[in-house]
């Protein structure tokens, strides 16, 4: 246990010593938030206003908050995974620098090393994603606050689980990489594609039925929907209080993937959380197992 604790400490120290890596990982979600707010907020707002049921007026604060909650939920859903890919590089650096050889001649088990990399990477990613979450909450507060304390706790839990999911997924993929060039290429691909695959950039309800069915098999989809549900619960409650008809609420929830359907059945938030937690356990287990079974050349 002491060996594991020291491995985690060593890995974290190395991460924070690389100030360029830390700050670039930290600043990425913040840049995304600024870009979202600058370029997409008004488009989302207009789009949302145009589909409102006739005869219902919505106050600006509620409209703004709806859009901002949707945007920040998407941003956090993407960042928890893409930041994990950016910060989970130590395992690859150790291979590239051959520092791993020093561990291989020691009594430390491969599985212990894997857990050490996993926890250190999760911890460093959590620092960044929670910072991004704090900034997002401040941004929401400036636009219109409808979240309850429980909502915030749920969102914190969602970010935590999504970060662990991103760390586990990146650990499994990075296991096969051995140079920083490969890691950079994978990071770029994930950054570019993950937002679409998890339904963050575009709700999957906009896609064809076939594609929707495929995306419903990806755990990231449930993570995005889960965080969006918790982030938007308050604005939906306010809309209902304003007299939005139930059909309109269902339409809105369907349109932005707060309601997900698997095989025609609606997936509850509890099930979404279960899928996410199950995925974290599964991918973490696979990563540890791959390390345990790893053979020398």
């Amino acid at each position: 246990m002491t060996g594991l604790f020291n491995m985690i400490r060593r890995n974290l120290r190395l991460f924070f010593k690389d100030k360029g890596l830390f700050f670039s990982s930290l600043i990425t979600p913040l840049i995304l938030l600024v870009l979202y707010a600058t370029f997409l907020a008004n488009i989302y707002k207009d789009s949302f206003a145009s589909v409102l049921p006739q005869g219902i007026t919505v106050e600006d604060e509620l409209l703004n908050s709806t859009v901002v909650c949707q945007l920040t939920a998407s941003l956090l859903a993407v960042c928890c995974v893409t930041v994990a890919f950016c910060s989970n590089l130590l395992m690859i650096n150790d291979k590239a620098n051959k520092n791993i050889n020093d561990f291989k001649v020691s009594p430390v088990k491969n599985s212990t090393m894997a857990v050490g990399y996993y926890f250190a990477s999760a911890a460093s990613t959590l620092i960044i994603t929670f910072t991004a979450l704090a900034v997002c909450l401040v941004y929401i507060a400036t636009q219109g606050w409808y979240l309850s304390f429980a909502d915030v706790l749920f969102v914190i839990g969602d970010v935590f689980m999504l970060t662990l999911f991103g760390t586990a997924l990146s650990s499994c993929i990075n296991f096969f990489l051995s140079t920083s060039g490969q890691a950079s290429a994978v990071g770029t691909i994930v950054s570019a594609g993950y937002g679409f695959l998890c339904g963050a950039y575009m709700p999957i309800s906009n896609f064809s039925e076939g594609l929707q069915n495929v995306l419903m098999f990806l755990p990231g989809t449930y993570g995005t929907s889960l965080i969006r549900n918790h982030m938007m619960r308050g604005v939906f409650a306010e809309m209902q209080a304003c007299g939005f008809p139930d059909e309109a609420m269902v339409g809105i929830r369907d349109g932005i993937d707060c309601n997900l359907y698997f095989g025609g059945n609606e997936v509850s938030t509890g099930l979404m959380a279960a899928v996410l937690i199950g995925s974290v356990v599964l991918f973490t287990g696979i990563f540890v197992l791959m390390n345990k079974l790893k053979k020398n050349r």
């Binding site: 060996g3 020291n6 060593r10």
Partner: peptide
């Protein structure tokens, strides 16, 4: 094969812990 960014003490501490 030690960690260049870490101090000598941190390097040796992390490696010593591998042996308990």
């Amino acid at each position: 094969v030690l960690d260049a960014p870490l101090t000598v003490r941190d390097n040796l501490r992390s490696r010593a812990s591998l042996y308990g």
